[in-house]
Every structure is written in C-alpha cells, then in structure tokens.
Amino acid sequence: MRAARLLTLFGAPALGLLAGLAFATPAGAEEEIVLPKQNWSFSGPFGTFDRAAAQRGFQVYNEVCSNCHSLKLGYYRNLAGIDLSEEQIKAIAAAKSVPTIGDDGQPTERPALPSDHFRSPYPNDKAARAALNGALPPDLSVIEKARVGGPDYIFGVLTGYGEPPADMKMGDGMNYNKYFPGHQIAMPQPLQDDQVTYADGTKATIEQEARDVVTFLTYMANPEMEQRKRMGVKVIAFLVLLTGVTYAVKRKVWADVH
C-alpha cells in the first residue's frame, strides 16, 4: 500500500523506537509477494518510452491481448505517440471494424478511423464473462496505474506462470502464477516463445514480449508522461533559480534588521 509506505517514509525519523518495534513484529497471515524490479526505459525523471519496444508491444497487444482484453480509453490516434506514422495508424484502424448505425437505421459495422477508440473484443462485461467461463478480463487502458507495482507487476504476471507447488490445491480452470495475488489466475499463460513474429527481427522470447507489451501499456496508461517530465525539468529548474533570487532579495531586505 502506497499510503503505508509513504507514512513510513515520512514518519520514520520521528518515530525511532516505537516504529522499530512495530515493524519488527511479523506481519499478518498473508505472505508478501516480492516483485523483481525491472529496468524500464520510461523510469526516472528523464525516462522516455523506448519507441521500438512500444511498437513491438502494440503488436503483442494487437495479436494476443486484444482477443480478450479491451483498451477502451485508448484511441488508434494515440499510436502517434509511439511514432507510428499517420498511414500506419490509418491502416491499423481500417483493419478493425467498429459498431455503427447504418443509413437504414440498423446496427452494422464500419472500418475504424484513427479517431475511434480501440475496438473492444466483447460488447459488454456480461458477454465477456459468458464467453470466458465467468472470468472478466480487466480493461487494460490504465492497468499500469491500477496495480501496485505498476510495470513490474504486469511483467511479473506475464512471466510468472509455472507448475503449482505440490501441496497447493488449484481451482477449476485456474492457473498457477508466482506473482498474482493468491497465485491462482483465471487467465491461461498468454505469452509463449515466438508467439508473435517481430518485423524488426527481435527474438520473441516470453520475456521480450512481456517487456514490450508492458512498455506499450505503460504508454497507453500515461500518454502524457514525456511531456510531463520535460515540463517538470524546466519548471523545477526555473523555480530553483527563482528561489535563489528571492532568497537574495530577502537577505538584502532584512540586512538592516539583524
């Protein structure tokens, strides 16, 4: 929990002994899942999205994830942010059909435009559950922001499949996953080696595919990130200068008081 970590951070200096006492005691019954930390192109104050990885990640999303998961807050035009050209985006969109109302007033489909939202695989949650044994695949639009651990969590789940320990009872149709809370996940292992064929010749290992799709999904959850960080660097540099000047004025103004 972020709030907990935050308070620990802020409270720690003042707390001393009491806190030490509290943290020394074993936590509750639930075991803590430790997500391996990955290096991401987009982490840190100057991090940017690795364009090639994000484009490959879109391919993984498009060919694998999108069969079950929606990305309904995203638009095809958002792909411009990972440097796909207007023509490429138009072609990607045109290959999908989205529901519309025809001239005769009946529901029909038309090719998607860049201004359309990503097509959802199911018309609604009920249809998804009906098709998937009762499980509802979460929408992936903001998944990076919606999970503790963010990119490391998604990467962990995508690569964390394996055989359950001998003493573990698995539910019907459930799959064992090291990093999923409770270790039982309804989603079957989505990525395999060479599940997709990358146009740029990158070898499509599970790790590579996971890394790429996480980059793409992080972009889709935070399309503003690069603009935000660039602006932040300027704003803070400006404020530091302004603080310096203001403090100098303060010293001068107060010089006669002390």
Binding site: F238, L241, L242, V245, T246, A248, V249, K252
Partner: peptide, 10 residues
C-alpha cells in the same frame, strides 16, 4: 536590481 529580477521571475 535583485528585486527587479525576482519580480520579473515571478
């Protein structure tokens, strides 16, 4: 001068 710089900055 400093005041001016600070005011301009603000």
């Amino acid at each position: 001068f400093l005041k001016l710089v600070a005011a301009a900055g603000a």
